[in-house]
Computed example of a mutant assay.
Amino acid sequence: MSKKITDLAYEKSYKPWHDSFKHPFITELHAGTLDPTIFRYYLLQDRYYLEHFGKLYDLIAQQTDNAKLKSALQENSAGLEAGEFAIREIFFRELNITDKEIKNTPVAPTTYNYVSHMYRQLYVESPLVAAASMLPCEWLYQEIGEYLSTKDSPIPIYQQWIDSYATEEAKLGVQKQRALIDELAEETSPIEQQKILEAFEISTQMEYKFWEMSYAKETW
């Protein structure tokens, strides 16, 4: 393979990747004009997504035979607890999002489909393909955070959201994940490499749809 697989995956997913930067959810969040009820709905759906994102780290780590992948995923799981989960708890307190509201908010179709897609990669494909399906979330959010960090949002909680991804730690974490997937992909078959590209592309499309879902407050 002449190019690294994460470079190929990025190229394959270029349009939905860059469309995310231009989505009204992102541009209005940055400008401070995003309807607070949209951000609230996003947080409620993201809570479900992150809950399963964390479970997937643990499940993939349990099922992989590769020591490097197992170690990286265990590290990511711990980082998620200390990072996004902790920040979301702050957001939920600030916005008075209660357990009752969480329980009474149905999981939206896009949230359900995105999470189901990642589980499918583990149970139908392989731990490596499943790990690759999780990479767009980390990578895209880091790039969006870095892109938006050049100018502050006038809404403090929106700026907190941006700041949580515009960190050197997040950037280094993505670089580490990419390097590992690139390394392991070189050791696998062309068929699995193609599965990695497909899983990555679908996840990137689902990332864009997640903004759409939040913005429209999507329901069944």
Rank of each mutant, 00 (worst) to 15 (best):
E212Q: 06
K68W: 05
L29P: 03
P156G: 00
N104E: 12
L148T: 06
L59F: 10
T204I: 07
E75A: 02
K195N: 10
F21M: 07
I181G: 06
G83V: 07
E212P: 00
P156M: 14
Y215L: 07
F200M: 09
L34K: 02
E125I: 14
E138H: 08
N76V: 11
P156W: 15
V174D: 05
N66D: 07
I60P: 10
G54E: 15
S203R: 05
A61R: 09
L69E: 00
E168Q: 06
A216S: 13
S77P: 00
K100Y: 09
G173T: 04
E192R: 07
E28H: 02
E146T: 14
D35W: 08
P156Y: 14
Y49W: 06
W220N: 12
D58S: 15
M118T: 14
N66C: 09
L140K: 01
M206R: 12
L180M: 08
K15N: 14
V129G: 08
F210C: 01
D99W: 03
E84L: 05
Y147V: 00
L180V: 04
E207R: 05
E11R: 06
N113W: 09
F21W: 00
D7Q: 09
T37M: 14
E192H: 14
T105L: 05
L59T: 12
T64M: 03
A131N: 07
A72P: 00
I26Y: 02
H18M: 03
H30N: 05
Y112C: 14
T110C: 06
G54D: 13
T37Q: 13
F39P: 14
L43W: 09
T111R: 07
K176V: 15
E198G: 12
E168T: 05
L34S: 02
I38W: 04
L184R: 03
M1L: 07
T64P: 08
Y10G: 13
L59E: 12
E11I: 01
V107F: 02
E192A: 10
Y215F: 08
K217H: 07
D152V: 13
D58M: 15
A67E: 11
Q121M: 06
H18P: 15
P36R: 01
K100S: 14
N104L: 11
E143W: 11
P24L: 04
S77M: 04
K12D: 11
F91Y: 01
F21G: 05
E143L: 03
E183G: 08
P24Q: 03
T27Q: 01
T188Q: 09
Q63P: 12
L50T: 09
Y123N: 12
I38S: 05
D163G: 11
Y57F: 09
E84K: 02
K100G: 10
A31D: 02
